[in-house]
């Protein structure tokens, strides 16, 4: 008799649910997320410097806020928001997620942590598990990066727990680039060091307020020069390294410095 009564209560409760209202909440949340993501991404492409990073990093935060508000509205329209009802709902939700979607739940949780700890933000250049690219979007479950070859890589946030995350610019405009030169050991290293410094100094891409450094190390087969400098925009990094390499090679050719060549092994 009691079971019958409870079932009828549930049916009654379901009958009371305003599905139109639920649909509107879900649609409204989806619309708001889509609109805010698109408009903020568009705005981020129109502004530059630190404002770009600020606008980009506000996208996931705003999305989380919309989702939380939509969830609260949904729950309060489904059940009476008493403490008992909420505890039961959360318990069921946690159990379901824990059993069926462990990794999914872990990624969701890590997604929330990324918003707080900010190991990467939209606009950052990161490397996770060998994939290097610019963070385009931070979703609830995963981060989307675009590689220099214009390939989108989707990486679940749960990598945050046990993987090394390399962030090249860490929310700033400053991203160090390195151009490598391998030269024949017979040359004036001081002259070459000075020359490479000037190569960086005269690059149109250079962020001149950041230091330029030339690191020299001797290898068994060559002298290795690492020309380190910062481009004005992190997005210019590949053009910058190309520019340094092309002009560096031309300058070295003009002073007659030879490049290292791997000696050909001959039989006997």
């Amino acid at each position: 008799m009691n079971n019958l009564t409870e079932n009828s209560f549930l049916l009654q409760a379901l009958a009371d649910v305003n599905f139109l209202q639920l649909g509107l909440i879900v649609f409204g949340a989806w619309l708001l997320i889509a609109l805010s993501s698109r408009s903020l991404s568009w705005l981020a492409n129109r502004v530059s410097g630190r404002f770009r990073f600020f606008v980009l990093s506000s996208i996931p935060v705003l999305r989380l806020l919309i989702i939380v508000i939509a969830l609260v509205l949904t729950i309060t329209s489904l059940i009476e928001p008493t403490m008992e009802n909420l505890m039961v709902l959360l318990g069921l939700f946690g159990l379901g997620l824990g059993v069926a979607f462990k990794d999914f739940a872990s990624s969701l949780l890590a997604g929330v942590v990324t918003l707080y700890e900010a190991p990467y933000r939209p606009g950052d250049w990161i490397e996770i598990n060998g994939a290097y690219g610019e963070v385009k979007a931070i979703n609830m479950r995963c981060v989307e990066i675009v590689t220099p070859d214009d390939t989108v890589v989707v990486i679940p946030h749960l990598k945050l727990w046990d993987q090394l995350i390399f962030n090249a610019n860490d929310g700033s405009q400053n991203l160090q680039c390195v151009a490598d030169f391998y030269l024949h050991p017979h040359h004036d290293a001081t002259q070459v060091k000075r020359l490479l410094y000037d190569v960086a100094l005269t690059s149109a891409f250079l962020q001149i307020r950041k230091p330029i450094s030339v690191i020299v190390s001797e290898k068994p087969w060559a002298t290795h020069y690492r020309l380190k400098a910062y481009p004005i925009e992190p997005r210019q990094q590949f053009h910058f390294v190309t520019d340094l390499t092309i002009r560096g090679k031309a300058a070295l050719n003009r002073v007659g410095v030879e490049y290292a060549a791997i000696p050909t092994l001959t039989n006997g």
Binding site: L195, D198, L201, T202, R247, A250, A251
Partner: peptide, 8 residues
């Protein structure tokens, strides 16, 4: 000067 590697 010129902002060129040989112009400084």
């Amino acid at each position: 000067y010129l902002r060129h590697v040989e112009g400084l």
